[in-house]
Simulated scan of single mutants.
Amino acid sequence: MATKINPAALQDILVFDIETVPDVAGGRRVHGIGLGDDAGVAELLQHQRRIETQGASEFLRPYLHRVVAISALWWQGDQIKLSSFGKTEDDEAALIAAFYQFIQRHAPQLVSWNGAAFDLPVLHYRALLHGISAARYWEHGEHDPSYRWNNYTSRYHERHLDLMDLLSAYQARNVARLQEVALLLGLPGKLGMSGAEVWAHYQAGKLAGIRQYCEIDVLNTTLIYLRFELTRGHLDRAGYGVRQQQLRTYLHSRDEAHVREFLTLWPENSHAAP
């Protein structure tokens, strides 16, 4: 019989998500583009990507994504905090440095949706670009033997738990979008915008809205994670209910419009709770 974790003592986890825009400056350097405004260069980069993929995608490679938001929910015992790293006006280097500094100090378990294929590779390349130190994140057992068998970058380790990767049985043909799985489970899903609109919002200077959008993705991912903990036997149904209520109580203490909207669409008797 599986051992059930005490629902009042949730493991130290950081559920995270990032939002990005095309790295216009980097694209100019990589592809030798001298002329054109930022919007035109971004469009050219996407066009080149469509050619490269024979029309399958215009989504740029990870190293050409510029990070504009990193949001996370930190859950430690009965303490919960939803926030975005840094300040709205911070540049990319400051946001990424704050993320890795948090890992350096607290060493949480990371939880993501598609983090292994996108979020973390983006952060790797961008940290490389800015020369940001992340010693604990890159630890593989050289200084701490416990990281030899459970580190952040090995695919089958759980110091970083990519829910999409695991639920798809590590098969690309089985992957699903966060939005689709959230709606399948009766969760609110994305609110107000989609990932395809982040670039337009960024150009319009709507950085606060991007951070709020990112935080909603984090909340959906957190609730999927709780359901996963139930299905793999780390929570019984009573513990699952307790943890949902802990999160709901915390969100009720927040007064932001996007959090209130999420709560409205996550009703008490939703079929999201089996």
Score class of each variant (00 low, 15 high):
R237S: 08
E197M: 12
P188G: 05
I210S: 03
A182F: 09
V181Y: 04
V181F: 07
E180I: 05
R237L: 14
Q212M: 04
T231Y: 09
L185A: 10
K206N: 08
T231P: 00
R232P: 00
T221C: 15
A196N: 08
Q179P: 00
L207R: 15
A182Q: 03
L183A: 07
I224L: 14
E197K: 14
E229F: 01
R227L: 15
K190T: 03
G209Q: 15
Y202F: 15
W199T: 11
R211Y: 07
F228V: 11
G189L: 13
V175E: 01
G205D: 14
A200S: 11
G233V: 11
K206I: 02
Q245K: 06
Q179M: 05
V198N: 06
H234A: 12
K190Y: 05
E229C: 08
V175I: 12
L184W: 11
Y225V: 02
P188D: 10
Y213W: 07
G189W: 15
I210K: 07
Q244R: 09
G205Q: 13
L235A: 09
I224D: 00
G209K: 13
A176H: 06
A196I: 00
R243L: 02
E180P: 01
V218F: 13
Y202E: 09
K206V: 02
V218E: 10
Q212C: 06
H234L: 10
N220Q: 06
Y240F: 15
G233S: 06
I216A: 05
D236E: 06
V175T: 06
N220V: 08
D236F: 01
C214F: 13
T222R: 14
Q179I: 03
G192I: 01
G192D: 12
R227F: 12
G186S: 09
T222Q: 15
N220G: 05
A196P: 01
H201D: 10
L207M: 15
W199N: 05
A176P: 00
L178F: 09
V218M: 13
L185C: 13
E180D: 12
R177P: 01
L219D: 10
P188Q: 10
L184F: 13
Y202S: 10
G233I: 12
L184M: 13
Y213D: 05
A238G: 10
E180H: 04
G233K: 08
I216Q: 04
M193F: 07
L230D: 04
R227S: 05
V198Q: 06
K190W: 07
C214K: 11
L183N: 04
K190M: 09
V218I: 11
R211E: 14
G186D: 12
F228W: 13
L183M: 05
R243F: 03
H201M: 14
Y213T: 06
I224S: 04
V242I: 11
M193D: 03
V198L: 08
R237T: 03
V175A: 02
E215I: 01
L183G: 01
A208Q: 15
A182P: 01
R243V: 00
L184C: 08
I210C: 05
A238W: 12
Y202K: 04
W199H: 10
R211F: 04
A238H: 10
A204G: 14
R243Q: 13
G186V: 14
L235Q: 12
A176N: 03
L247D: 02
C214H: 12
D236W: 05
L247E: 04
